[in-house]
């Protein structure tokens, strides 16, 4: 078990290091930020001066080490537009995105997993067909469209929910549904297929043969076995929700890091974009490590052997 944990952590560390390096390379490929900082009529000397001040005239590998050194000290650079540490700006917007992602995750898991269970255990029923329709819709309607549709129906026509902004709980409902819809479908499909797969196994028949009802076998044995692939999906989906927030926050004028990312890209405020990219990557890596630990909790074959 310790061995297993150590392996996962080392893998996560390597993955994160790879991400840092790729982000650095991409930032460099996108050009010299000095030109963005100087006034339009700046002389060549002024530009060279500033470039020297910012250290962009040093060899790439020195800049790379400097960048890593900065990251180690949580120094992610300064926003070129607002002249304050990029991390502070992102941190001030992060709670909104966490709220939104959490809301979307509640929608995705809260509806997706029960829907998957019902679809797997009540095959051929009317309720299964209704759920299938919902799931297919959630999967196939693009996020920006579903967001606008929701606003049109519940915000503009019915006037039940606010069309944008944050603060009240009611403002969270539509963006959570719009953001969570795709994840919800993924959870529903994975849960369904995983349970159907488990239902065909011998231990289900054996469970019924000892007098358990099919429902009891599902609750006591099938769900836990079926959970393993769903955990994998959950880990990926949390990262996807953060990444998906970029579009939804723009549609709903939600002041989170997604909106910030779009604004920063438009104003070419690379330091902020960099922090957001690193943050989302870090969440991906972190959730997959967590998933590995949850596997071990659920499955004794991992916990006891490796």
């Amino acid at each position: 078990m310790l061995n297993y944990a150590a392996q996962r952590l080392i893998q996560a560390f390597v993955a994160m290091f790879g991400v840092l390096t790729i982000v650095f390379i991409v930032m460099h490929l996108s050009g010299d930020p000095t030109l963005l900082l100087v006034p339009q009529d700046a002389s060549a000397e002024m530009i060279a001066e500033l470039r020297h001040q910012l250290g962009f005239d040093r060899p790439v590998w020195v800049q790379y080490l400097d960048y890593l050194y900065g990251l180690l000290h949580l120094d992610f650079g300064v926003s070129v537009v607002q002249r304050v540490p990029a991390l502070d700006i992102v941190a001030s917007r992060l709670p909104y995105t966490i709220q939104l992602a959490a809301g979307a995750l509640v929608v995705a898991i809260g509806f997706g997993i029960p829907a998957g269970i019902v679809m797997a255990t009540m095959r051929g029923s009317v309720i299964e067909r209704i759920l299938t329709a919902i799931v297919v819709t959630g999967q196939s309607v693009p996020t920006f469209l579903s967001g606008i549709l929701l606003i049109f129906i519940f915000g503009v026509t019915l006037r039940w929910l606010p069309t944008s902004g944050s603060g009240e709980f009611s403002a969270l409902i539509m963006p959570s549904i719009a953001l969570g819809a795709l994840s919800m479908s993924t959870f529903a499909r994975m849960t369904r297929i995983s349970i159907i797969d488990e239902l065909g196994k011998d231990y289900v028949r054996a469970g019924r043969a000892r007098g358990l009802s099919l429902g009891s076998v599902v609750v006591r044995h099938v769900l836990r076995n079926a959970a393993i692939p769903v955990i994998t999906i959950a880990a990926l989906e949390i990262g996807n929700l953060l990444a998906g927030a970029v579009i939804i926050e723009t549609v709903f004028a939600w002041p989170g890091i997604g909106q910030l990312a779009i604004q920063s890209i438009q104003s070419r405020d690379f330091m902020i974009v960099q922090v957001i990219v690193l943050l989302i990557s870090f969440v991906y890596v972190l959730t997959s490590v967590l998933a590995d630990f949850v596997y071990a909790l659920v499955d004794p074959r991992i916990r006891l052997v490796r």
Binding site: D202, Y203, A206, H221, R224, N225, P300, R301
Partner: peptide, 15 residues
């Protein structure tokens, strides 16, 4: 009662 051909597969692996 019944016992099956594949005893290992007939037991829930997580219980």
């Amino acid at each position: 009662s019944i016992i099956f051909q594949e005893p290992s597969a007939s037991l829930d692996p997580l219980t």
